[in-house]
Lab assay of single mutants.
Amino acid sequence: NQESVVAAVLIPINTALTVGMMTTRVVSPTGIPAEDIPRLISMQVNQVVPMGTTLMPDMVKGYAP
């Protein structure tokens, strides 16, 4: 099972992602793959992401799977 990126904290809208904001977990449905965390650093979320929420591609500005 592939791990997906999950919010480790509440991430406010338009916040640039940092390593500490993200964790990984096997979830269903799957979100952004864990191995993409290095690509996500400094990208901004386009909505509020509650802690424990799986990051989906459409939540991150400029992210393309």
Rank of each mutant, 00 (worst) to 15 (best):
Asn1Ala: 14
Gln2Thr: 11
Gln2Tyr: 07
Gln2Lys: 12
Gln2Trp: 04
Glu3Asp: 11
Ser4Trp: 04
Val5Asn: 00
Val5Gly: 00
Val5Asp: 01
Val6Gln: 05
Val6Met: 05
Val6Gly: 02
Val6Pro: 00
Ala7Glu: 00
Ala7Gln: 01
Ala7Cys: 03
Ala7Leu: 02
Ala8Tyr: 09
Ala8Asn: 05
Ala8Thr: 09
Ala8Val: 08
Val9Asp: 04
Val9His: 13
Leu10Cys: 06
Ile11Tyr: 00
Ile11Glu: 00
Ile11His: 00
Ile11Gln: 00
Pro12Gln: 10
Ile13Gly: 09
Ile13Trp: 08
Ile13Phe: 10
Ile13Tyr: 06
Asn14Glu: 12
Asn14Lys: 12
Asn14Ser: 14
Thr15Ala: 15
Thr15His: 14
Ala16Trp: 15
Ala16Tyr: 10
Ala16Lys: 11
Ala16Met: 15
Ala16Glu: 09
Leu17Lys: 00
Thr18Pro: 00
Thr18Met: 10
Met21Arg: 04
Met21Ser: 04
Met21Cys: 03
Met22Gln: 01
Met22Gly: 01
Met22Cys: 03
Thr24Trp: 14
Thr24Gln: 14
Thr24Ile: 06
Arg25Ala: 12
Arg25Asp: 08
Arg25Glu: 12
Val26Met: 11
Val26Arg: 03
Val26Tyr: 07
Val27Gly: 05
Val27Arg: 06
Val27Gln: 07
Val27Cys: 04
Ser28Val: 10
Ser28Tyr: 12
Pro29Trp: 05
Pro29Met: 04
Thr30Asn: 15
Thr30Ile: 15
Thr30Val: 13
Gly31Gln: 03
Gly31Cys: 03
Gly31Lys: 02
Ile32Phe: 06
Ile32Tyr: 03
Ile32Thr: 02
Ala34Cys: 04
Glu35Lys: 05
Glu35Ala: 06
Glu35Trp: 07
Asp36Glu: 10
Ile37Asn: 02
Pro38Cys: 07
Pro38Phe: 07
Pro38Asp: 15
Pro38Arg: 10
Pro38Ile: 06
Arg39Trp: 07
Arg39Gln: 07
Arg39Met: 09
Leu40Lys: 00
Ile41Phe: 08
Ile41Asp: 03
Ile41Tyr: 11
Ser42Ile: 02
Ser42Gln: 13
Ser42Val: 03
Met43Tyr: 10
Met43Gly: 05
Met43Trp: 08
Met43Asn: 03
Met43Asp: 04
Gln44Ser: 11
Gln44Arg: 11
Val45Gln: 01
Val45Thr: 13
Asn46Lys: 08
Asn46Pro: 02
Gln47Pro: 00
Gln47His: 13
Gln47Cys: 04
Gln47Arg: 13
Val49Cys: 06
Val49Ile: 15
Pro50Glu: 10
Pro50Leu: 13
Met51Glu: 13
Met51Tyr: 11
Gly52Arg: 05
Gly52Cys: 11
Gly52Val: 02
Thr53Leu: 07
Thr53Glu: 08
Thr53Ser: 07
Thr54Lys: 04
Thr54Asp: 01
Thr54Met: 06
Thr54Leu: 06
Leu55Lys: 00
Leu55Gln: 00
Leu55Ser: 01
Met56Asn: 07
Pro57Lys: 15
Asp58Leu: 10
Asp58Glu: 14
Asp58Ala: 12
Asp58Gln: 15
Met59Lys: 02
Met59Gln: 05
Val60Gly: 00
Lys61Pro: 07
Lys61Ile: 09
Gly62Val: 04
Gly62Ala: 09
Tyr63Arg: 04
Tyr63Ala: 04
Ala64Pro: 05
Ala64Leu: 12
Pro65Asn: 09
Pro65Gln: 10
